[in-house]
Design a protein around this nucleic acid. Structure first.
Length: 493
RNA sequence: GGGCCGUUAGCUCAGCGGUAGAGCAGCGGACUUUUAAUCCGUUGGCCGCGGGUUCAAUCCCCGCACGGCCCA
């Protein structure tokens, strides 16, 4: 417990304020303006015109700076929209308000009302006619010039980060805008937003390790979902035809600059569409967002210019392996050669692994990073796609794509497998892999197969990793910079 | 899980074998147009935690905790 001189001084101030009859935490002031709104509206008005305004303005927010003179002070107030300077003067404020002004600390929440004027240096400033304390701050804020840079403190005490670092606030405002735009786009295309279970008896719909939890009253284990897929497809079977969900998935895996154990996905399903339809749909969605965020289709991510102008490059897994990973066409069909190549490139593959899985290991190792400009990778092996529809031209491939931008997977989509017999076979193949030691392989899900047996319309579905998309569009190097409260190890006192 | 780096005042950082420094913040004083206000004075530290080496450790060594980056 922190108990230094700074806190002692604050506690003494609090006692003095209380003794003077001042409520430290009132809730009866309603600011009529915001900083940015005043600056936008009156920022260009001349001094003479400002003086003629009869209007009174009121602001509330956090005191970010105090430049105090004997009988007057300039202060900076920060609200949700930005910062604005206010002037507190002895000959304008009541005696009581001016004495309050002398007791305020940087970090306090205050309310001011008064009129606008321009200072000698021409800064639009609110001259306070009244001043109120709205919430007392006990702890000192981070330093005014360098702000808060300690990464651990920024994540553990995000409130401080948001107070001290305006750029951080901007990232989360943009995050909200992007998600709003996604909803707008989906709604315009007649998709229905739904919510499906986070707690599932089986963690299906993806290949990943789940978190386990327990329901006491039912005395039953549940898994936090690794994907909403199987539930969303039940809704399509139920006739909802076009659905989407924006929500959290949970994967019990390592943490890195691109992985948080809980992350946000938009997953959506459209009946009577194919994975090829979703490619152009994705291009349109991303362009719609970029247009609204940047006013164009290009942006810079970590020093590299990314161009979203459609159409995006389309590349089959086979071509990628030959052209980028420099595999020989024979390596792609001969499991022995494929394993040899994979091991040579440093992949940890087993003799029992299906060929498709070995090829994708090479892809992850050799190709992924090199797909910088938006690229749809297509024609995935059936072995790594237990829920995708087989390709008409080649039953060993599926109608699926993954979208790569800046060397990272951003989206995964496919024409859905709606043949219940084939689905059962795929689950059985996954069970074999599970028996061979792959604890991420998909489980058998009879209940899901039964739903398919009622007939699911032909459908294509897609998942978009929202955190990663937002990293791109905010030029953030770490996923923790776009998640308000990233998972951290508990720190014991 | 492995490698490298970090942890010193509320914040941002110096110091790296001889017992703790700066700027900002704070406190006291001056000041009614400042813009990181200025000027004078001043308080503040289990130098992440635990061992070891040494006459002496914030500094060197080992372990632990937390974090960062890279790799799996």
């Amino acid at each position: 417990m922190e108990d230094n001189d700074l806190l002692k001084v604050r506690r003494e101030k609090i006692a003095a304020l209380k003794a003077a009859g001042i409520d430290l935490y009132p809730n009866d002031a309603k600011p009529q303006n915001t900083t940015a709104q005043i600056l936008d509206e009156f920022g260009h008005m001349e001094s003479e015109n400002l003086a003629e305004l009869s209007q009174k303005f009121s602001l509330a927010g956090r005191l970010m700076a105090v430049r105090s003179f004997g009988k007057a002070a300039f202060v900076k107030i920060q609200d949700r929209k930005g910062q604005m300077q206010c002037y507190l003067a002895k000959n304008v404020l009541s005696e009581q308000d001016f004495s309050l002004c002398k007791k305020l600390d940087v970090g306090d929440i205050v309310y001011v009302s008064g009129k606008l004027f321009r200072t000698k240096t021409n800064e639009l400033t609110l001259e306070a006619q009244s001043l109120r304390l709205m919430a007392k701050s006990i702890h000192p804020l981070p330093e005014k010039w360098h702000g808060l840079t300690d990464i651990e403190t920024r994540y553990r005490q995000r409130h401080l980060d948001l107070i001290a670092n305006p750029a951080v606030r901007e990232i989360f405002i943009r995050r909200s805008l992007i998600i709003k735009l996604m909803r707008q786009f989906m709604d315009r295309h007649d998709f229905l937003e739904v919510e499906t279970p986070m707690m599932q008896p089986k963690a299906g719909g993806a290949v990943a390790r789940p978190f386990k939890t327990h329901h006491n009253a039912l005395d039953q284990d549940f898994y936090l979902r690794i994907a909403p897929e199987l539930y969303l497809k039940r809704l399509v079977t139920g006739g909802l035809e076009r659905v989407y969900e924006i929500n959290r998935n949970f994967r019990n895996e390592g943490i890195s600059t691109f992985h948080n154990p809980e992350f946000t996905m938009m997953e959506f399903y459209q009946s009577y569409a194919t994975y090829e339809d979703l490619m152009s749909f994705t291009e349109e969605l991303f362009c719609f967002i970029a247009e609204n965020v940047f006013g164009g289709f290009t942006f810079t991510y970590q020093g590299t210019q990314i161009d979203l102008t459609p159409p995006w490059r389309r590349l089959s897994v086979r071509d990628a392996l030959i052209q980028i990973a420099q595999m020989d066409p024979d390596d792609l069909t001969d499991p022995g050669k494929a394993i040899a190549f994979a091991r040579k490139t440093g992949c940890d593959v087993k003799e029992t692994d299906p060929l498709g899985k070995i090829l994708m290991a090479v892809f992850d190792e050799r190709v992924e990073k090199k797909l910088v400009q938006p690229t749809f990778v297509t024609h995935y092996p059936v072995a790594v796609s237990p829920l995708s529809r087989r390709s008409g031209a080649d039953p060993d491939l599926v109608d699926r794509f993954e979208l790569y931008i800046s060397g990272r997977e951003i989206a995964n989509a496919f024409s859905e497998l709606n043949d219940p017999a084939d689905q059962r076979e795929r689950f059985l193949a996954q069970l074999k892999e599970r028996e061979a030691g792959d604890d991420e392989a998909h489980e058998m899900d009879e209940d899901y197969i039964r739903a398919l047996e009622y007939g699911m319309p032909p459908t294509a579905g897609e998942g978009i990793g929202i955190d990663r998309l937002i990293m791109l569009l905010t030029d953030s190097a770490s996923i923790r910079d776009v998640i308000l409260f990233p998972l951290l190890r508990n720190k014991q006192e």
